[in-house]
């Protein structure tokens, strides 16, 4: 294993990147070569470096979403060699480091593809459909100031932990991008399971399940393809078992 402390070395990469100026024009792959970049850089930092070179040559930099760069904000996400967020499990693409790849490797970077995620530019797509799914019912209706004492409802430790595990979804859209039907089932199931496992979520449980699933169809997401790729690519490792749980919920 290479290490930060020693001479961790560098590598060269061939990047095949989807370039598309705007939604109205067709896109195409463009190839770039990055020579001797530090192996301790993240893939996004390698793109930063590529962009500095593109600026110097007068070419438009590659547009990609990013923000926190520590795997929690959910901004980043694209396919690396066909895999959402790349080859490492439980990892969003900002946490993917170059030491993962062999010297001379070719990486194909491609945006999320889904009818519900219209393209914007290069690797950036519009994911506001996910916000509209939450708006359809992914909440507990409680106005500020109406809350009872937080200890008035006892919630077992394991129950709270299980609700937490489903609440960790960062809304990146990888589950949708990796599903052959472009379904948002894992995203919706995670939110229904988060609130549905807690006493606070009970009053609106049925209504929420119906409303969010109806919205999912309205946004153009497909139905669950049952191939479980969503679970495999989820940076937060949310279990696809919740999808079958969800199907019982809406009845």
């Amino acid at each position: 294993m290479t290490s930060l402390s020693g001479a961790s070395g560098s590598l060269s990469l061939n990047l095949r990147i989807w370039r598309q100026d705007n939604p109205g024009e067709p896109g195409a792959y463009r190839s770039f070569r990055l020579e001797r970049v530090g192996a301790d850089l993240s893939l996004l930092e390698a793109l930063d470096q590529l962009n500095e070179q593109l600026i110097a040559t007068g070419e438009r930099p590659v547009h990609f979403e990013h923000d926190c760069r520590e795997g929690i904000c959910g901004s980043c996400g694209f396919l690396v060699n066909g895999q959402a967020h790349g080859p490492r499990a439980a990892t969003s693409v900002c946490q993917l480091y170059l030491r993962q790849f062999a010297d001379g490797a070719t990486l194909t970077l491609e945006p999320w593809r889904s009818r519900a995620f219209p393209p914007i530019q290069d690797l950036v797509v519009e994911r506001s459909a996910l916000d509209r799914l939450i708006a359809a019912g992914g909440y507990c209706s409680v106005n500020t100031g109406q809350a009872p004492d937080g200890n008035a409802m006892l919630i077992g430790q394991e129950q709270a932990a299980s609700a937490f595990a489903t609440a960790t979804c960062i809304g990146c859209g990888a589950c949708v991008a990796s599903c052959r039907n472009a379904s948002a089932s894992l995203f919706v199931a995670a939110k229904l399971a988060h609130l549905g496992q807690l006493p606070q979520g009970q009053p609106e449980r049925r209504r929420r399940a119906r409303a969010m699933q109806q919205q999912m169809t309205a946004e153009g997401f497909g139905s669950c393809s049952s191939n479980l790729e969503c679970e495999a690519v989820c940076p937060k490792q949310i279990s696809a078992d919740w999808i079958s749980w969800m199907h019982r919920e809406a009845r």
Partner: peptide, 10 residues
């Protein structure tokens, strides 16, 4: 790079 029109992260 680019212009003030359209997306321009730089």
């Amino acid at each position: 790079p680019g212009t003030a029109e359209g997306p321009n992260p730089e």
